[in-house]
Design a protein around this nucleic acid. Structure first.
Lengths: 225, 225
DNA sequence: AATCCATCAATTGTTGACAATTTACCACAA
DNA sequence: TTGTGGTAAATTGTCAACAATTGATGGATT
């Protein structure tokens, strides 16, 4: 347990369980057994229950009285709902980043963008993925709003619940990074409105990709039946 | 305990403690004693700890390892930060309400607005306050987005942490309800953009009122010293 | 008087045990 | 075969006791 002393045992356990959910090792609808988890982490049930309570509040688990806690099931409708909110928050993030970001931070964005571009040309998704995360985390940092950051990250985590089999979309890196360029230019020009719209557009196209992917999957399932 | 069977003991306790915080009976920085709360609610410390874990995750309490949990202290900077996010979310709420709200719901908004207007003319804040809540809750309902609703309510709860002594602003009911009228008209005309901007403006003026109130308080404190 | 240090009380962290409820299993009857 | 009831196992909910840490008290020393 990494942060045992820093935040206590129950929080460490909470992060561990969260990882299990986010990595998909615990999938939507799965039941969490308290004694199983307890002996897995080498603790008693007390801290496990506290950890679960936190994850329920975070929206990653759902609790049913006298029956236990389950990994939250997210259907298509909810996922799109969350995407809409996320798109809107991203717009705000773009605006704030363009307003409050320092010149150094903007330079760091350019650096990340260069590495992203390199990954695109090499068609290397493994390299693209972490840099893409870094790009968006840097933008969050530039907003200067701690509350906005936690709220946004919470939404992103929730969206991980919607990772269905066969819906991993690792194409369209080129389009994605072209959008990054538009965002970056707007921020560099200190144009909050433009930056916000570019951010919003960036998420909405991702949502569109997801929707068509779902459509394709749904159709192919229909053919199979 | 009202919802004991529905959601379990720890959740009931969590709501009780949340009420204590929201009503200001527990103020920012106050320490929560587990045994005290346990005998207050007639339970053992287990459910108390679980409840606190949930409230920490919700952002109403902060936990310090080996020292306990405290009511979260929110400074001016954080409060304004939250106001900005809330204003933005309200814009989204306005857009969605104008798009997805039913004609019946719009009629209910008119009804609430009429009662608000009556309270304004009678200068009756006690009557205005609950109807104002109802107005905004109806708008939330009209969005059709459960996630947006919980997220928004969570922010509103957080803002309660910033209730300082002498900052209760119960004036400006007339301006506030005039803004309600603008929102309502835009929604009735099914104009999402206009409705969103009216909502955003509604919160921003509230933020402005808060800022000037803080300024006044700060100045008067300086005089007193 | 101020500072340090030892000791003890108070509080949090964790655990194992017990109660209550749900789930699984199996015999039995229709 | 299907459905039903009942009993036992498994699991969650709650509690009280113990361990570990922190905070307070009071005297000794400078």
């Amino acid at each position: 347990m990494s942060d045992l002393l820093a935040t206590g045992l129950s929080t460490a356990v909470q992060n561990k369980i969260e990882d299990l959910v986010l990595q998909g090792k615990l999938q939507g609808g799965d039941k969490l057994n308290e004694v199983e988890l307890a002996e897995l982490f080498g603790t008693s049930r007390g801290p496990i229950r506290e950890a679960c309570k936190g994850l329920v509040q975070a929206g990653l688990l759902t609790a049913v009285p006298n029956r236990g806690v389950f990994v939250r099931k997210m259907d298509v409708r909810e996922a799109l709902e969350v995407y809409d909110i996320r798109a809107f928050l991203d717009q705000l993030i773009g605006q704030l980043a363009a307003t409050h970001g320092s010149d150094e931070q903007i330079q760091e964005l350019w650096d990340i963008h260069a590495r992203l571009d390199k990954a695109v040309r090499a068609d290397d998704f493994e390299a693209y993925y972490p840099e893409n995360l870094a790009f968006h985390e840097k933008l969050l940092e530039m907003t200067g709003s701690r509350r906005l950051t936690t709220m946004y990250l919470s939404l992103v985590k929730e969206l991980h619940l919607f990772r269905r089999k066969g819906l991993i979309q690792q194409g369209s890196m080129d389009v994605s990074n072209a959008e990054h360029a538009l965002i970056l230019e707007a921020i560099a020009h200190r144009d909050p409105v433009k930056a916000g719209l570019a951010m919003r557009n960036h998420v909405m196209t991702a949502k569109q990709r997801l929707m068509t992917a779902i459509e394709v999957q749904s159709v192919s399932e229909q053919i199979a039946s």
